[in-house]
C-alpha cells in the first residue's frame, strides 16, 4: 500500500456506555491511526452509531479513557469536537432542510468565521471579507463533489443520494482532520455507491483525512478500509485487517448465526 499511515491519533480504552439499564457499549478498546480508513461494522443494534457519538462527544461514556492526539479527553460537548477537527455525517441525513446547498456547506465552516453579529448587521470589512474567503473554500468543496449545478437548490428538494453528498460536503467544508461517516452509502444504488466510494478515497488520499466509517455493505468495507473493528451487542468481537476479520469465526457467527 502506497499511502502513509501514521501514528495512533485516537485511542479508545475500555469504553463503556449505558443508558439507564441498557448497556450500549461494554469495555471496548480500539485505536485509529492517522490517515487510515477505519471501518466499524456489526449487525443492527451493535452500538456502532453510539461509538461514533462517543468519539465526537454527543454521548459521554461512563467508563473508559479517550486519548485524542496524545491528550486525554475530559468532559466534552459536541461543539468541542468541531473545534478539534472532527467532523461527521449522520445515518439519517441531518441537513438543514430550509437552506440551500451553498448555505449548508457554508455552515460547515462556521467555527472558522470570527465576525460578530454586529459586524454582520453593518456588513463591515471583516464580515464581508470572511463571507468571500469562505465562499471560495466552499466552492472548492462543491467542485470536488461535483454538485455545482445544485448550489442554489434548497436541500429539501434534492434526491436522497445527492443529499448524502451534500452532507459529506458540509463535513468536508470544516477541513477536518478526522471524518466520521455513519453509513454514507445506506440506501444508495450501485452507481451512487461507487461515486461515494470514490469521494471517500479521494478525501483520504488528497487531504490525508483520517476516516472512521460505519457501513453495512461488506463489499465496500472490505474494499476501501485499512482496518476493521467488529461490534456485536455492544462488545468488540473482532479487530484487524479486512481479510483477518472476514475469516474470524466470531464475526462469521455474529453475521450468519451458528448451527446447533
Amino acid at each position: 500500500m502506497s499511502k502513509k499511515i501514521g501514528d495512533v491519533i485516537l485511542d479508545l480504552q475500555n469504553i463503556s456506555l449505558r443508558f439507564g439499564g441498557v448497556k450500549a457499549l461494554t469495555d471496548i478498546s480500539f485505536d485509529v491511526r492517522e490517515h487510515e480508513i477505519r471501518a466499524i461494522i456489526g449487525p443492527n443494534g451493535a452500538g456502532k452509531s453510539s461509538m461514533l457519538n462517543v468519539i465526537n462527544g454527543v454521548y459521554q461514556p461512563q467508563e473508559g479513557v479517550i486519548i485524542f492526539r496524545g491528550q486525554e479527553r475530559k468532559k466534552m460537548e459536541p461543539h468541542h469536537a468541531a473545534t478539534q477537527g472532527i467532523a461527521r455525517t449522520f445515518q439519517n441525513i441531518a441537513l438543514f432542510k430550509g437552506m440551500s446547498v451553498l448555505d449548508n456547506i457554508m455552515t460547515g465552516r462556521i467555527t472558522r468565521m470570527k465576525a460578530s453579529f454586529v459586524e454582520h448587521a453593518l456588513w463591515l470589512g471583516r464580515a464581508r471579507r470572511e463571507e468571500l474567503e469562505h465562499r471560495k473554500k466552499v466552492e472548492e468543496v462543491i467542485d470536488f463533489l461535483e454538485i455545482q449545478h445544485i448550489r442554489r437548490t434548497p436541500v429539501g428538494r434534492l434526491p436522497y443520494g445527492l443529499q448524502k453528498r451534500v452532507e459529506l460536503g458540509r463535513a468536508l467544508a470544516a477541513e477536518p482532520s478526522m471524518l466520521l461517516l455513519d453509513e454514507p452509502m445506506a440506501g444508495m444504488n450501485v452507481e451512487e455507491k461507487q461515486d461515494m466510494c470514490r469521494f471517500i478515497l479521494d478525501v483520504n488520499d488528497q487531504f490525508g483525512t483520517t476516516i472512521v466509517l460505519i457501513e453495512h455493505d461488506m463489499g465496500v468495507v472490505m474494499d476501501i478500509s485499512d482496518r476493521v473493528v467488529v461490534l456485536d451487542y455492544g462488545k468488540k468481537i473482532g479487530d484487524g485487517l479486512p481479510d483477518d476479520v472476514k475469516n474470524n469465526p466470531d464475526v462469521i457467527t455474529a453475521y450468519l448465526g451458528v448451527s446447533h
Binding site: P78, H79, A82, A87, A94, T107, I110
Partner: peptide
C-alpha cells in the same frame, strides 16, 4: 436540525 448544528460547532 439542532443536533447537527451542535456537532458542526
Amino acid at each position: 436540525m439542532d443536533v447537527a448544528a451542535e456537532v458542526i460547532g
